Amino acid sequence: MTFGFAPSAATSITTSAGSANRLARMLEPAEWASAGIPLLRNPREVVSGLHTRHAPAPATAVVAVLDHEDRLAASASFSRRSTPVDGWEFRNVLLAHLRRVIPHDLRLRAPVRTAVLLYCREGDERWTEEDGAWMWGLRDACTLHGLRCGAYITLTRGGWQVLGEGRGGRRPNSTSSPGPFLDGAAEAELQPLRTASGAAEALRRTAAR
């Protein structure tokens, strides 16, 4: 005869509540498309520029701030932790990196600059719950930093895609090599960046203003 302990009702309720909260902190494609996200004037140029500067590998996020003419004002890249998908966690890490590379615009009556997020991941271009959590996190981080919430872009083996817009391309992709700088901006410098796990990694980051 074996003895064990069945999970208590309180534990089950707590687990269910936690799962429900995580699901609430994500946006589905229809919600994102109806949120009034501003369109990028030249998404291929933005994607190519961020890919050149940061050379993201799978599970790497690149958050960038664009000025009123869609020119890059600042950007930062970081590796995602192996934690449950939760928009609240994603919001916190995005906000932390935004604060490192550019001052907030909370004193302005209306946002002038726009934050976009490029996420390199495995899989295809179809929306996932992880994408939904990143969308929620980006929108909330923008509100807390005084920015407009901009495009969410996935980078996979098949290419890149601006979710909610239907615009995309085959290159760059998660396996392609970074191309040359075409806009004359200063090249991203290689700097030690402390990841969420606490280990220092050399990741490409630029904060051109």
Rank of each mutant, 00 (worst) to 15 (best):
T2Y: 10
F3A: 11
F5Q: 14
P7W: 10
S16T: 10
S19M: 14
S19E: 15
A20P: 00
N21P: 00
R22P: 02
L23D: 12
R25P: 03
L27K: 10
P29E: 07
E31W: 11
W32H: 03
W32I: 03
W32D: 01
G36Q: 07
R41E: 10
N42L: 02
E45P: 00
V47E: 03
G49L: 14
G49D: 09
L50P: 02
T52L: 01
R53G: 04
P58A: 14
A59V: 04
A61I: 06
A61C: 15
L66H: 03
D67L: 05
D70C: 10
S75Y: 01
S77M: 12
F78Q: 02
R81N: 10
T83I: 14
V85N: 11
R91H: 13
N92V: 09
L94H: 08
L95C: 06
L95N: 04
H97I: 02
H97S: 01
V101A: 06
P103G: 08
H104R: 12
D105Q: 15
L106C: 13
R107T: 15
V116C: 11
L118M: 13
Y119G: 00
C120L: 01
C120M: 02
E122W: 06
G123E: 11
G123T: 05
T128N: 01
E130V: 06
W136D: 11
G137N: 09
D140Q: 14
T143A: 15
L144A: 15
L144Q: 14
G146P: 06
L147D: 04
T154L: 01
T156I: 03
T156S: 09
R157K: 13
R157W: 03
R157Q: 12
G158R: 11
G159D: 04
W160Q: 06
L163K: 06
G164L: 03
G164W: 00
G166V: 09
R170G: 04
P172V: 03
N173W: 05
P178L: 05
G179W: 06
G179N: 05
P180S: 07
L182A: 12
D183C: 04
A185E: 07
A185H: 08
A188P: 04
L190W: 09
P192K: 08
A196Y: 02
A200E: 15
E201A: 12
L203M: 13
R204S: 12
R205A: 09
